[in-house]
């Protein structure tokens, strides 16, 4: 606790409406960074590549990511195939970049202490940082889905969507399912963002935080693939990430979705609290 923060405490007692200024400025920062914009372009490029590859090639079926061979029947499947691929590494990498910038990046640039002398309480700062990470997660997943749906509809049209159960959904209901998929994937990436936020409070090097979170993600995937560790799988953050396929059954199969969401919530709460405990006792020197 710096002297400035101690002195600022009495002024916080005044009841007032929660200001969204800090959040808006934070989101503006994330959206304005050139590297984040480049990252979004990479995320958006993959569904375009997938869709054009399927359009150009004449191979009908077999291999490739899930949903890819359904693309020709309905353009929305481009989004689903792209999400299946990008949930593996690209989207976690994107949130790792944002999380690295969140606290470690500010500390590295020397702007963290100025933020805290505004005055902003550390808890509020962490709430705003995490809210902006959640926003970033939703944004990234939405970009993949929207670009995928747009290129898919442009190339393959909007036929009825065949669910995994063999029934067909009209375009409106199919879009609704895609929105659910986007929300579910965003929840997983946002939970990973909480882990990243904690790592970000441990270091002043944003690149170290980014690499650490990427290692955490890849390690989780590897552990999830080892059958001898099946007792551990339900506790891994990535275990149910690809369960969004269950939303495309008829009726949707909620068991795994709910399990995945509760794991996401558990990770988010525990790691946000860890970040909060860490940041509170930390001497902000830069």
């Amino acid at each position: 606790m710096s002297v400035a923060e101690r002195l600022s405490r009495p002024t916080r007692k005044r009841g007032r409406v929660v200001s969204t200024r800090l959040l808006r400025s934070e989101i503006g920062l994330i959206a304005g960074r050139r590297r984040n914009q480049m990252g979004l372009l990479v995320l958006a490029a993959l569904p375009i590549v997938l869709a054009i590859a399927v359009k150009v090639s004449n191979r009908t079926a077999g291999g490739g990511p899930d949903f890819l061979d359904s693309v020709t029947s309905n353009g929305l499947f481009v989004s689903l195939a792209a999400l299946t691929v990008e949930m593996g590494l690209f989207l976690p990498l994107a949130i790792a970049m944002l999380a690295g910038d969140a606290v470690a990046g500010e500390a590295n640039l020397g702007t963290l202490r100025y933020l805290l002398t505004v005055p902003v309480r550390r808890t509020r700062l962490l709430v705003v940082k995490y809210a902006s990470l959640c926003f970033g997660a939703l944004w990234g997943v939405t970009v993949v889905a929207v670009v995928g749906a747009a290129i898919g509809i442009a190339l393959f049209g909007t036929g009825p969507l065949t669910t995994l159960s063999g029934s067909q959904l009209p375009f409106g209901a199919a879009s609704g399912r895609l929105v659910l998929v986007v929300l579910y994937c965003s929840a997983g990436i946002a939970a990973l963002g909480a882990v990243g936020l904690f790592i970000s409070t441990l270091t002043e090097q944003p690149i170290a935080a980014t690499i650490a979170l990427t290692i955490f993600t890849i390690l989780s995937w590897i552990l999830d693939g080892v059958p001898q560790l099946d007792w551990l799988h339900p506790w891994l953050i990535v275990d149910q990430w690809l369960a969004f396929a269950d939303l495309l059954r008829d009726p949707p199969f909620w068991d795994n979705i709910l399990r995945g969401l509760s794991v996401d919530a558990g990770y988010a709460v525990v790691f946000w609290l860890l970040a909060w405990a860490r940041l509170a006792g930390k001497d902000i020197t830069s």
Partner: peptide, 14 residues
């Protein structure tokens, strides 16, 4: 075969 499409994730094992 490789049913799960997660690339570079090691889920092929499962």
């Amino acid at each position: 075969g490789n049913g799960t499409g997660a690339v570079a994730t090691g889920t092929g094992v499962s």
